[in-house]
Every structure is written in C-alpha cells, then in structure tokens.
Design a protein around this nucleic acid. Sequence first.
DNA 1: CTTTCATTTCAATGATTCTTGAAATACCCT
DNA 2: AGGGTATTTCAAGAATCATTGAAATGAAAG
Lengths: 107, 107
Amino acid sequence: MVAEDAANLFGVLSNTDRLCIIRVLVEAGPSGMSAGDIARKIGASPSRASFHLNALSEAGFLHRERQSRTLNYRIDFNRIGALITFLMEDCCKGSAELRNCCSMRLG
Amino acid sequence: MVAEDAANLFGVLSNTDRLCIIRVLVEAGPSGMSAGDIARKIGASPSRASFHLNALSEAGFLHRERQSRTLNYRIDFNRIGALITFLMEDCCKGSAELRNCCSMRLG
DNA sequence: CTTTCATTTCAATGATTCTTGAAATACCCT
DNA sequence: AGGGTATTTCAAGAATCATTGAAATGAAAG
C-alpha cells in the first residue's frame, strides 16, 4: 500500500462515530446490521450515520447490501489488516521493537 | 485506550508528510535526526516540517531532544504499538479473521 | 397508485486542519 | 555584546470535514 492510501484510510478511522460503527459491526458478526439499527446503537441521526457509513464503505472497511427495505452493513477485515500490515511492515520496517510494543501475542 | 484517543492518533497519522517523517525516523534508528535534516529529506519547508513534527510529538509518536543548536527527533514505538493493539483487541475484539488479514507473521 | 418506512442526498453552516512566509526564539561562536 | 544558524511560532487564507434538517429515492404493502 502506498502512503497516500494509508493516510486516507487513517483519516477515515480518525472519528469516534466511525470507530464506534466498526466496533458495533464487529460485534454484530457476519450477519451485519441495518443502517437504522447502527444509527440507534451509536446515538446518531440517520443522516449523520449514513454520512459515516458511506465514508467507511468507500474506504472499503464495510460491505453494503440491500435486504428488501433495509440496507445491511457488515465489516470487512481486509482493509484493517492491510493498514496494520502497512504500519508494521512498510512504515516501521518490521521493527522487532514495535512488536514488543504490541500487547497481544505476535509470533 | 479510549476510542477518542485512538481517533486523535489516527488523525495524526492521516497525513503523508507525517507518515513520511515516521518512516524516515524509523530508518534513522535510535540516534534520530534533526528537524532540518528531516525537513530536507521529506522536501518540506522548515515551518511545515515543524508543524508536522509538533503534531507527531504531541501525540507521543516522537521524542524531541535539544542537542546544542539542533533539535533531535527520534521515533517512539509505544504509541504505534498501542494503536495497533487498540485496532486488533479493542476495536476488533481479537478477531482471528483479522489476524488472517495481516500479511506478517502473527502468533 | 398512494402511503409508509428506511435510507440517502443535498445545501448551508460551522469547525478543523494545512500551507505559506514573516517574525520570534534559542543557542553557539568570536 | 553581536552575528549567524536552527527551529519554532504566528497570522492569514485556503482547503477539507462534520453536522443539521429538509427533500429525494427506493422498496414494500395496502
């Protein structure tokens, strides 16, 4: 991944509403959740939730699928994985020191 | 780490100049690099480099130390590590699927 | 075919962030 | 002290981003 793309993805993550949406959709699992339910869950107006859902979808963090009347969103882990890989490998050159700074198990 | 802090840290990383500075300082290693050398290396004016160096320092990604006339900056991996941990553990609840999406070795 | 529900889009406004160049500060040397 | 180098700070303006509420779209159901 090129730095400009990474910067844009970080920009999408630099908002608490959007981080909150990601968390909610991780909890929701593979079945995902409708835009309305997400909006209620994060305490945002429909248009505000839609704005952030769109930013996340455009960036590739989410998949959107219409299910009759509702739009169902679900998480896609690939972009987050690519971003973590960028940070550790491209940006920090696989630094062992950085690995030690991550508190989860890293091989 | 609380979501608002993570959002702010992502905001700091959402800029190519700043990602570039991090890369340059990872390469520079523990001895770090002066503000002027960093500015030249990333092709930015002194004041622009200073603006971004300040953002990175305030966020805790960098350490600053005066060495006689020059200010020396060096990378601190702890914040990046904390951010990766937030993303994998807090935000994505340690998802095994996310781990599979990271191309480096994860235990 | 009109109504209703779910969601997005739009326009206006406010807030934040970035860039630039000039001025200020900090330090060193003679 | 005075002059030079390194860096930051500041003010102004441009650009980007977020919020709001109203209007538009899409899909189902009476």
